[in-house]
Structure formats: structure tokens, C-alpha cells
Amino acid sequence: FYICIVRFHSISSNLKVQDLCRCGTLGMSDDFEIAFGRRLIEEVARIAPKLRLIFRQTHSQIVGDALMERSIDLAVAAGGFAERLLSRQVLGEGGYACLVDPRSLAPGQNSIELAQFVARDQILVSSGGFIGITDEGLAALGLSRRVCASTTHFAALPHLLKGSQAVATIPAHAAQSIAALCDLALLPCPLALPRYPIELGWRTSTQLDPVLAKVREAIVASFA
């Protein structure tokens, strides 16, 4: 964490203590930000009213380096905290669900068969843009899918799915939040995919910043 000085047009000698606020940078991919960001803001505001949260994009493949380089203070990710100078706490585990335009479904349809799933175009959300966990699950069954587009941002999905027959398979927490806000249909994933850990990570230190400790408590409460 660092001190952020709120800038005014007056000269610096006129700044008062109340013009100073703490800022903390929290690394997470936007699926977590979409699903838990508002809750985190409210929880942090309750326990540390002067704290400003800065959300920064990261994912499990780069989160460890980001913490060690001090570009973020805390992180929520699906693993990636194996570095010996990092500590971690399991917040829970996640699964997957599907999103589609409801107009692409038959009346009353609230699920999708595997054959129907494979027949649809697919939107892939991936940091690399080439392959995802769904491809691995399908390959184990001798199946494959056609990915018509890839994106690195879950927030783009409503714009990419609306008016199409395409389907996106994403973490269930993000799928639920996006469906609730964007008039998309939430469907169970017809493919058995492995669940994954959701972890909170931070730099191990003998002297723990008390504000950092409070933010960690807020994160744990938000994911409870």
C-alpha cells in the first residue's frame, strides 16, 4: 500500500490530513471484479472509509510476478501463489456455467445438451486466446468445438453474444452476475469440467501493514 495525495489547486502547504487517503492495488481478473467488486468496495468502505481500492487486471500465470514486483498489494486468482515469499489463503472453489442469448433458445429451454453445445459457435475468454478448459474437456471425449472469436475480457461477452447463436463457457460466479445484469440466459455447463481453487495471495512479511490486514479481512468476508 502507498499514500495517495488528493490534488487540489491550492498549494501543498494548505493540504490537511483529511486530504490524504490510502490506496491499495488489488489484482484480479475481471470475472472476479464483475462478481465481487461491488461487494468488496462496500466492505472496504465499512472498515476503512479512507481507503481507495485500485483494481488491476491479472491472472494465475502472472499474479506471482506482479506481487513480487510490487505492482499489486493483494491478489485474488485461481492459484499462482507458489513462490516461497508469497502467502495464500483459500477463499473457496469455482465451477463453470454457460451464457447464451435467450432468443437463441426454444421456449422454456433452461439447459443445453452436449450435442447442441458443440454445434454452436463458441466465444472463448482466455489470456492467450487459443485454447481453454472447455477444449481440454471436449478433447477427452473425442470432441472439438468451433471458436468464432476470443477475448481477454469477460465484460465484453454481452456485446459478443447478443443477437447470435453463440455460447460462452465461463466461471459460474461471473456468468451469474453477467446474466443478472445483461439479459443473457444462464445455463448449466453440459460438460463435466474440473473445479478450481479461488485463492487470496499476498507478500509474506514479518511486519504486516494493519490496513492491509483489514483489507484481507474484507476480501475474505466478500467471498464467504
Results as ranks from 00 to 15, higher is better:
A179F: 10
S71H: 06
A66D: 07
R145T: 10
E93R: 15
A77Q: 09
L20R: 04
S150D: 05
A75L: 02
Q109H: 09
T206H: 15
G163S: 08
Q207L: 13
P49M: 06
C4L: 05
N110K: 12
D31R: 09
L74A: 02
P171N: 01
T206S: 12
G92E: 03
R145P: 06
L26S: 05
I11D: 10
R46W: 10
V90L: 12
H173D: 11
S222N: 07
F8W: 08
L212Y: 05
I198K: 02
S164L: 03
V167P: 07
C21N: 07
M28W: 09
L20Q: 03
V100S: 00
S205F: 15
A75S: 03
N110P: 11
F36A: 08
G108N: 03
I219E: 02
F1L: 13
F81G: 00
Q109E: 14
R70Q: 15
S60K: 00
C148D: 14
I133H: 02
A97D: 11
R38P: 11
G94L: 02
A106P: 12
E136W: 08
Q122Y: 07
D183Q: 12
D209I: 01
G64R: 03
P107E: 15
S29K: 08
P171Q: 04
R22H: 06
R120T: 06
I47V: 15
R146A: 14
V125C: 12
L161N: 00
V147R: 04
A97N: 09
T58A: 01
G95E: 13
I131G: 07
G95P: 09
W202C: 14
A166V: 00
V220I: 15
I5H: 12
H9I: 10
E42A: 08
R84D: 13
H59S: 04
L138K: 06
S29C: 14
L20M: 06
T134H: 01
F117L: 05
R38Y: 08
T58I: 02
L181P: 05
P102Q: 00
V125Q: 06
W202A: 15
G129I: 07
R7C: 09
A119H: 02
L105N: 11
F81S: 02
A179S: 15
V125F: 11
R216P: 07
V125W: 02
R70V: 11
D31S: 08
C182S: 14
A139C: 12
F55Q: 07
T169K: 02
L99N: 02
K16P: 00
R146K: 14
T204C: 10
R70S: 15
I72Y: 14
Y196F: 15
P49G: 01
L74K: 02
R203W: 10
R195S: 03
C189I: 09
L51K: 05
G79W: 09
L86K: 03
V6D: 07
I41Q: 08
P210H: 04
Y196T: 06
R84S: 13
L208A: 15
D19N: 11
V215H: 00
E113S: 13
V17M: 11
D19A: 01
G142W: 01
I54Q: 13
V147K: 10
A149Q: 11
